[in-house]
Measured scan of single mutants.
Amino acid sequence: KRPMNAFMVWSQIERRKIMEQSPDMHNAEISKRLGKRWKLLKDSDKIPFIREAERLRLKHMADYPDYK
């Protein structure tokens, strides 16, 4: 399994928030909203998620050196 990218790290947190506020919302609608919100997010606000994704990528490389 591939490591999460910055969007996936961010969306995992945000998806939980949306599901708590709107438990009846369909997953497809949540995904659309997350995509739009990520695009509107300032680059500076994305930095912590980019760093976490990089950390996960490096850990994945160390844990699975033969992964292609």
Rank of each mutant, 00 (worst) to 15 (best):
K1G: 12
R2L: 07
R2W: 09
P3Y: 09
P3S: 10
M4Q: 05
N5E: 06
N5K: 03
A6E: 02
A6P: 11
M8C: 07
M8V: 09
V9T: 05
V9M: 07
V9E: 01
V9I: 14
V9G: 01
V9W: 02
W10Y: 03
S11C: 08
S11P: 00
S11D: 02
Q12P: 01
Q12C: 12
I13A: 12
I13F: 08
R15W: 04
R15H: 05
R15N: 02
R15T: 06
R16W: 05
R16N: 07
R16K: 14
R16A: 13
R16L: 10
R16Q: 13
K17C: 01
I18N: 04
M19C: 09
M19N: 05
M19P: 01
M19Y: 04
M19A: 13
E20C: 04
E20V: 04
Q21T: 11
S22M: 07
P23R: 02
D24Q: 11
D24R: 06
D24N: 10
D24A: 08
M25P: 04
H26N: 15
H26P: 15
H26W: 07
H26S: 15
N27C: 09
A28I: 04
A28K: 11
E29Q: 05
E29A: 09
I30D: 01
I30P: 00
S31E: 15
S31C: 13
S31T: 14
K32W: 07
K32P: 04
K32Y: 12
L34Q: 03
L34S: 03
L34I: 11
G35E: 15
G35K: 15
G35R: 15
G35H: 15
G35W: 15
R37C: 05
R37P: 01
R37L: 05
R37H: 06
R37D: 13
W38R: 00
W38P: 02
W38D: 02
K39I: 05
K39R: 09
L40E: 15
L41F: 02
L41A: 01
K42V: 05
K42Q: 11
S44R: 07
S44Q: 12
D45H: 05
D45Y: 05
D45S: 05
K46E: 01
K46M: 01
K46Q: 02
I47K: 11
I47Q: 13
I47T: 09
P48D: 04
F49Y: 12
F49K: 01
F49M: 00
I50R: 09
I50W: 02
E52G: 05
E52F: 08
A53K: 00
A53P: 00
E54W: 02
E54C: 05
E54I: 02
E54S: 05
R55F: 05
L56S: 07
L56T: 07
R57Y: 04
R57N: 04
R57C: 12
L58T: 11
L58E: 15
L58G: 14
L58N: 13
K59Y: 07
K59S: 13
K59V: 11
H60E: 14
H60R: 09
M61N: 11
A62M: 06
A62Q: 10
D63G: 10
D63S: 10
D63M: 14
Y64L: 13
Y64E: 13
Y64T: 14
P65A: 07
P65G: 12
P65F: 07
P65H: 11
Y67P: 12
Y67L: 13
Y67S: 14
K68A: 04
K68P: 15
